[in-house]
Each structure stands twice: as C-alpha cells, then as structure tokens.
Design a binder for these strands. Structure first.
Length: 500
RNA sequence: GCUCCAUUAGCAUAGUGGCUAGUGCAUCCGACUUUCUAUCGGAAGACAAGGGUUCGAUUCCCUUAUGGAGUACCA
C-alpha cells in the first residue's frame, strides 16, 4: 500500500515570510492536495537568537489569506505534534547520542574563537578551513582524545557540540525530483554541527529527525538547501531510516541586477516582496492584490503546465501541478507581470463584489449619488482598464464629482473660439430628450453633427473635456447616459461659464 | 578559492536529433469614423561561445564563459 503523501513547510520565524517562502509553501500545498496528502506547518525556531516576535503569526495569517491553510501545525495539532521545534527540544538529544553510539558522530570541544582563528588563518594563506576527515584528529574532540579524557571533559561540564562524522572516500549518488541525479564526493563535506552547546539541535539534525517522526514523504524546499542534501542523505543512512524524496525549487531573482530577490529590491522597485504588510513594508494584500492573483503569478514563477494556459484558480493548480514541470534555473521576478495577473483576476470578479470593495473608498461621496447600483454600473465601465480596485477612483472620479478643473493641455488643444457655441447648441439638442440612453444620445449627437456639417473632432473631444474634465475614460456616451441628462447638461453649462 | 546547480528574445517560459523555434508580459506600429495607461490587429526580437558525436544538433558529450547557491554552535 502506497504511503500517504505528507509534506511540510518549515519556515524559521525570523521575520516576515517573503515571496519566495510563500511560493515554497504554495508548491508544497499544491503537491499535497494533488496527491490527497497532508500539508504540515512546522516552525523551525531552534535558533533562539534570531527569533522575532510576531513572525509565526504572520506566517499563519499569510497562508490563510492566500487560502492555502495547513492541515497540521501549531494550534492545529495533528498526531505528530508539537509543531514548534522549541517545544520538541527534549526529543533531539537522544538522536544525537544514538549517532555517537553508532560512531557516526562525535563530541567536539573546540571553542568558537579557536575555530574562527583556524578559519582566518587558513584564509590568510589562501586556503579553506574544513572541519572533516583530514584534520579532525588534530582538533579538540572525542576522536582525538582518549575515552577517559573525553569523559573527564564531559563530566567537568565543559561545553561541547556534537559533530557528524562525514565519511571519507565515498561517492554519494543523490536524487532530486527536479534536477535528477547529483553525484558528490564525500571528501569535500565537512563535519557539520548537529547539536549545539546550548542544548538545541541545529537545523540539520532537527530537520531530519522531525521529517522522519512526522512521516514526511516529500521534502520540497528552496535551492539554497541543495548543498545540504548530501549531509541530509548521510544522516538518513546513519539512522538507517528511509529518506523522503527531495525537490529543490529554483530561486527567485532580482528584477534587475544580480542575486536573489530581497526586501530592498521591493523598496527600490516600488513593489511588494511580502504577502502582508510588515512594519514599513507594504504587502501584496495592502497593495490591492487579490490572493488569487498572487497565487497565480507565484505558481507560474518556476513552474508551467506545458500548455499555454496562464490563468489558474487554486483548484486548477492543484489538478495540474507536478514537480517534474518545475524549472531548474532561477526565475527573475517581473513586477509588471504581477499587475497583469491582478488585472486578469479583477476582470473575472463580479461587479457587485468590486463595487462593494470600491465603496469603502467612496465613503465621502454622498449616498444619494451612489444608490441603486450606480457604483456597480460605474465599475462595469471602468474596470476594463484597471489593475487594482485602488485604480478605480483615479479612473472614474468624474462619475461622482463634476469636474472642478479641466486638464490644461487638453483645453489648449480642444477649446476653440467657437466651442462654447457648439456646446451650447448641443445642450439644446439634448434638452428635449426623454430617452437618455447611450445609444439614443449617440444617435442624436451624431445626427446633429451631420446636419450642422461639423466634424467629429470639433465636437467630441471638447464634449469629453466638458463631461470628464480630462481626455480619459470609456465611451463618452456611456458616461453621459450613466450620469443622466440633468448632470450632463449641468456639466456642459458649467464648462461654458468656466472656460468661456 | 572550493563544491554543487543552471544557461532559449528585455523578462518569464514551451519545444524538438532534421519542415518558417511556439506563447505571455514589456516594446514599436496600426485599427476602433479622431480620448486612453483599455480592447483588437500587426511588427521586431532568442537556442551563451568553442570543440566534438552524427548524414544532420538549439536538442547528446566535453571545455570555456556567465549567472546562482552553499561553504556558521543561521535556518
């Protein structure tokens, strides 16, 4: 019977989740749901020095906002809890000892200062200090010391760490779902610390132990972990545990320049790098992005379905996703494209929903101009050219307030000596209309232009200026119809007074 | 420096041992009987370089270059 798929997202609560972390979470979620498995959130807080207040809540809130909640995690306990490593602290030591027992690990007493000295010393000579087979016997540890000496040190309470004894002269054949086979020579590996002198495990130990205990079947994480894969594989071997499958996701790179995407890029480029706001940094949510759009662009960053479809709902992503179709190389982040995704999702939203979102910025506008579905009709006309709900006001302010000023450049270009006369005559044409629909007004105006032997250019642009105050907006007659006869005529008369 | 990973147009990517290398964003140009950051139509633009293997390579192999990651008692 095949094992149930279980994946985990294991962030460190050292700050807000950034967009790369969110994508890792998303891919884990998609993979889990595709295979009807479990998505586990595990908080990797083994480094007390880097703990940041509020970061864990932030992570949970971000996942919820995006609609990719975890099945098990803190405050959502399953049978594999607890889900914070700090609360699992007591578990790890015995595994470290087991490895020492099996001679896959050893005690090391070297002080951080001493190691630092070695590193600096090597660096000065143009060499790299690696704590492993070639020098471990010259360093201060239970391999170089006799059993008695080691015991004496331990008994005296001397601080120690536990290091992994990486094997010598072995060729390790690793497998990654995205990258395929990876071969590595164990001689270049160093003896990583597994257990710290403060009594906490390092990431490496805690990670392997927890993944095993939590019955994780697939480890899907960022490419920055690829160099740790040999160590992790070796640890599974040492414990004689079956290793999960691994998939290392490509990194998300800066829009311009070198390196991976960072918080500063967002500040420079004026786009969010966090799902939710964090202190001064605005999040995608606060910038007006829909969770659907964020999910959508994130999914297509480093993954594609192999078809030309670009717009996916979460459900469609779950159905279509596969790790085999994840790209191998880093993906440069394109903030422009994220807007396009939001634009697309905005078009899909019902006018009613958009209107109610828009309504909240409209609270200063008197109720009587926005009753009877007026806002919905406005939204219908302007949404096509909007990327965000927050664009609506800029795009359609004239639906709520008559122009108080007229765009200068347009006035210069469009407002000729005879324009006031034309507009004035036009008011008289429109005055008797009882059926003030877009089609009817359009027919009347065009007809009149024809009768007068005028050109469209002489009438239409100034008329737009008069109604809108600017040379923008959707089809002019749609605007006039929605504003209504009284308001349209009032604006025409006002413009004649103001612009003369 | 060392180790590992990658390399199709400005960006994200599809794809193939052999027809004009496909798509989206961005760009430019047209159209919508003259608004537009919308829509529609069109255009331009790529297989990093050099060696092999092969009848033939963007596709397979090697080298170089470039980019990325790691190299902590951080994750």
């Amino acid at each position: 019977m095949p094992q149930k798929v279980r994946v985990r997202f294991a962030p460190s609560p050292t700050g807000p989740l950034h967009i790369g972390g969110v994508r890792t979470a998303l891919f884990n979620y998609l993979f889990a749901k595709k295979h009807h498995g479990d998505f586990v959130l595990r908080i990797e807080d083994t480094d007390q020095n880097r703990y940041v207040e509020g970061a864990e809540n932030y992570i949970v809130e971000a996942l919820n906002w995006l609609g990719i909640p975890f099945d098990e995690g803190p405050s959502q306990e399953g049978e594999f809890g607890p889900y914070r490593q700090s609360e699992r602290k007591h578990l790890y030591e015995k595994y470290a000892l087991e490895l020492i027992e099996k001679e896959h690990a050893y005690y090391a007493f070297d002080t951080p200062e001493r190691l630092d000295f070695h590193r600096k010393d090597h660096e000065a000579k143009g060499k790299t200090f690696i704590y492993n087979w070639h020098n471990r016997l010259k360093l201060d540890n239970s391999l170089s010391l006799s059993n008695e000496e080691t015991k004496a040190k331990l008994d005296s309470g001397a601080p120690y760490v536990v290091r992994f004894k990486s094997p010598q002269d072995e060729k390790l054949l690793l497998h990654d779902i995205i990258r395929g086979a990876i071969e590595i020579d164990t001689n270049v590996l160093d003896d990583k610390v597994l257990f710290k002198s403060d009594g906490m495990p390092t990431y490496h130990l805690a990670n392997i132990v927890d993944d095993h205990l939590m019955e994780i079947t697939h480890v899907i994480r960022g490419e920055e972990w690829l160099p740790s894969l040999p160590l992790h594989q070796l640890l599974y071997n040492a414990f004689e545990w079956a290793a999960p499958e691994f998939a290392h996701l490509p990194l998300i790179m800066k829009p311009v320049g070198k390196g991976k995407l960072s918080k500063r890029d967002g500040e420079k480029g004026g786009f969010p790098v966090f799902p939710l706001s964090w202190n001064e940094s605005r999040g995608y949510r606060e910038s007006g992005y829909f969770p659907e759009a964020v999910l959508n662009f994130l999914a297509l960053l480093g993954w594609n379905p192999g078809t030309e479809q670009e717009l996916f709902s979460l459900q469609e992503l779950v159905e279509t996703f596969s790790l085999e179709r994840v790209t191998k190389s880093g993906a440069r982040f394109d903030p422009e494209k994220t807007k396009w995704y939001n634009h697309q999702w905005l078009q899909k939203k019902p006018n009613e929903e958009l209107a109610s979102l828009f309504d909240s910025v409209l609270k200063e506008i008197p109720q009587d101009v926005r009753n009877e579905g007026y806002v919905e009709k406005v939204v219908e006309l302007i949404k096509e050219r909007a990327d965000f709900v927050t664009d609506f006001w800029e795009l359609g302010d004239y639906f709520f307030e008559a122009p108080t000023t007229y765009q200068e450049k347009a006035v210069k270009k469009q407002w000729k000596d005879d324009t006031p006369t034309i507009i004035s005559q036009l008011t008289m044409v429109l005055e008797p209309l009882t059926d003030f629909t877009s089609e009817n007004v359009e027919a009347k105006v065009k007809n009149w232009i024809g009768e007068q032997g005028l050109s469209f250019g002489k009438v239409m642009p100034p008329l737009r200026l008069v109604i809108v105050g600017d040379m923008k907006g959707p089809h002019l007659f749609d605007i006039m119809a929605l504003l209504g006869k009284a308001e349209s005529l009032a604006r025409m008369e006002k413009a004649i007074r103001v612009l003369g």
